[in-house]
Every structure is written in C-alpha cells, then in structure tokens.
Nucleic acid binder design. Structure first.
Lengths: 210, 210
DNA sequence: ATGGAACTGTCAATTCATTGACATAATTTT
DNA sequence: AAAATTATGTCAATGAATTGACAGTTCCAT
C-alpha cells in the first residue's frame, strides 16, 4: 500500500486535517475546496492538496473534496479504523488522567491494563481498571495482545522498562518520561516531552519581549 | 539582543540540548565537543554547532564547550533564569497532574492558582492550591502578575476562555484543549494536542506493518 | 448543449533546513 | 618552543519542504 516513504512533516498535519474535517462534518457540510479549508485552517491551499495527494486523489476537479469521504479516508490512513490495545505503565496523576480521558477510546485506543511499582495502589481501580504490580506485565502483554504501551513513569526507570516492554512484544511506545528511549528502530516511539514544550513557550515569550 | 529571527526548528531542539547537558553536568563532566555530543544525542555535530551559533560562540576551538557554562547559557536563552507565574484553567485529571508535577517549579514555572467551573470542587486543594471559581480569574490574574495560563478544559469552552485570558492580560497560553485558539499573534500559544500525538503513533505503527 | 467558472493534481520554482568542508585558533604532547 | 592534534565557527553545497502556477477536468448556469 505504502510505496514511497511519507515525511513526518506531512504525517504531523494529518490529525489536524482530520479534526477540521470532523468539525465540518458535524456542521453538516458536505463539500469543501482546498481554498475553503485553507481559509479556515490558515495554511496554504497548495499544501493541503500536496499533502492529500501523497495518499491518493481524494478530490474531484471542479467540485472539491467530499467532507465525509475525506474524513473517513484520513481516519483509515491514521489507522483509526483498527482497534489498539494499550497499557499504562505508571499510575501517577498523569497516567490516571490519560486513562480517564474517554476520547482515546472513541478512536479505537482501548486501555486494557494499568501497572505501577507502588504496592500501596495495587488493586485500586481507575475507571474500572485495576492497578497491577509490574511483575504481571509480561504475562498481561502477551495474553491481551497489547501493541501500545504508555510510559508515564519518572525518567529514572523509563529506559529499562521500555526495553522490557519491547522484549514482551510491544510494538509502540507513547513516551511521557523525560528521557530518550533506546529501542530497536522497528519499535515506534512517540515522545511527549511536556517540559520541552513549556521551555519552548518560555523562549517565545522571552524573545517576543525584545 | 535577538537580531535575526531564529527558526522554530532550532528552538525545538534547545530543550533537548539543555537536558543532555544537565545530565553531563550531573555526571561531573566538564567539557564536551560537538562530536561527543553528536554521538550521545544521535544528531550531526554540524547541526549542534550551527544551532548553538545562532546565539553566539559558546565554544572554544581546540577545547570544545564547557558543560556548565553552556548549560547555563541555554537556560538563559530559554528564559529559565526568570520566574513565571502560571494559572491552571480546568482542574480535571490533567490539570491536577500538571500542578502535582514538581519539576516545572524547579525551572521557575510557579503555579499560583487553579480555576474550574465545577462548583463541587471549589475550595478543594491541589498541592496546597485552592480551586477557585472562574469568576475570580480576572482579579487574580491582574493581582498576581500571571503571565502564562495553562488551558486544560474541554475544547467546547477553550476558545472563549482563551479570549478572556488575553483580555485579562495573560501573555502566553499552554494549550491542552483539542482546538486551535484564536488570539492575537503577540500572545504566545504552545499547543499540546495529545490525541494528535497518539494518531501519529498510530500511523507509524500501521505503516511499518506493510 | 455550450460557455464560463471552479477546482484538483502535479510540475517547477522557491524557500528553508541540514550537512559537509575547511580555515583558523586553542590545546596538548614531545 | 615547536609540532601535532583537536575542535570551533562559518561558508558553501546539498537536500527537504513549501509555495506558486497551470493544464485539464468537472460543475453549473443559461
């Protein structure tokens, strides 16, 4: 299906297209041109056409794009038509916040288990999911066909736990720990470094002041 | 101080340099060359030198870079030598997780207040900070010299609240709501769209499978 | 039906980002 | 003290991403 490698710059923009198309769909709008989308999203129409064309011709000359169809197609490209089984490793505030955020499940990302090394919270339930000790992880991952692990533990343990998870057969890691993981390149890692993001904000704030 | 505009690509890499330099400093290492850093960080030495040179010559030919000095300087560039006063708007799980995450304070980002529209949690304390009703926001922002607002509310209310915050004098918004804010360009916005990040992971997972 | 307007898909041009190369300077070794 | 080594800062070359332009197709009004 995928013939040429598509740049991460393009991939990063897909979720935003998806979101805007979802909004248009909810408003009952059936068709949209690259120029109209351009106006709403504040990107060039050329970029929109270029981006979409990486995946095929979804539009029609003289008409534009069918909102519902394009929305579905981008969803498929993003793999949202398939279910993913997730575990959370680290049941701190952030881990709990993610489990409690329902919208991920709507998109097919199902939280199956939560793990933590703190014995005091073992057995505690987060949205019905019981917190388990780390020792259970290996069996759980294998038995429940888990493909994505969400890492919300402190940086000190993260690298080692990531390696364990890979050994257990995980395919992708959504990494909130503030450290770069060292895993084989076929394992997909998506980093969310919140403090990096805040520092960037801080820089822009400071630089705008002079 | 800033003469030429520096690209966001460069800015985005600064926090990572800062992190690695901090680690080296903690290990007691005093000097580092761009080549050594390159090996550790898995980026080209040329990029490191190019990036740093946007801000001045921190190194010395034949010697390399002094770790402690460079760490300090990057910290200053990122504005981490100054204190910032923050409020959280939206005391849900994510908002609470952020307040509880101590490391931000270590970098000079001080949470001064938490606001939420749900009356049931007004008066509740999160790490000693009382949750206040939204109506208090205007006075609080003005009296406490708040410059950064953290938006952790659902997308439905986010755009309107952002406009209010701007009117109250806020300078920057760290936006976790899954919507693009509409604020004047002098207001700095840093978006953290978690579901976009997860969708990107999902794409890469799917595309690696074929 | 026919003509004009509205669009896409795509090629080419441009702009932006990254990498490579090297002159020059400080350091270390002999 | 001189030679050899190391390593920066910067210019030029390359590569990637974005934008502009337009041929060709479809839609819509008359």
């Amino acid at each position: 299906m995928e013939e040429k490698e598509i740049s991460q710059a393009v991939i990063s923009r897909l979720p935003r297209y998806f979101r805007y198309l979802g909004d248009l769909k909810d408003e009952g709008i059936e068709r949209v041109s690259s120029q109209e989308l351009s106006d709403i999203m504040k990107v060039t129409a050329s970029q929109i056409r270029q981006d979409l064309n990486n995946f095929g011709g979804f539009g029609q000359q003289g008409y534009g794009y069918n909102v519902g169809y394009l929305y579905e197609e981008i969803g498929k490209i993003l793999g949202l038509d398939k279910e993913h089984n997730l575990i959370i490793v680290g049941a701190g505030h952030l881990g709990q916040a993610l489990v409690n955020y329902m919208n991920f499940e709507r998109r097919g990302f199902i939280f199956r288990g939560v793990f933590d090394c703190n014995p005091e919270i073992h057995g505690m339930k987060i949205r019905g999911i019981e917190v388990q000790p780390m020792e259970n992880m290996e069996v759980f991952v294998k038995e429940n066909n888990i493909d994505i692990a969400v890492l919300t533990i402190p940086k000190s343990g993260a690298v080692a736990v990531a390696e364990q998870l890979v050994a257990y057969g995980i395919k992708a890691i959504w990494n909130f720990a503030h450290v770069d993981l060292n895993v084989p390149k076929e394992i997909q890692v998506e980093n969310v470094h919140l403090s990096d993001s805040l520092m960037k904000l801080s820089y822009n704030l400071a630089s705008r002041d002079n």
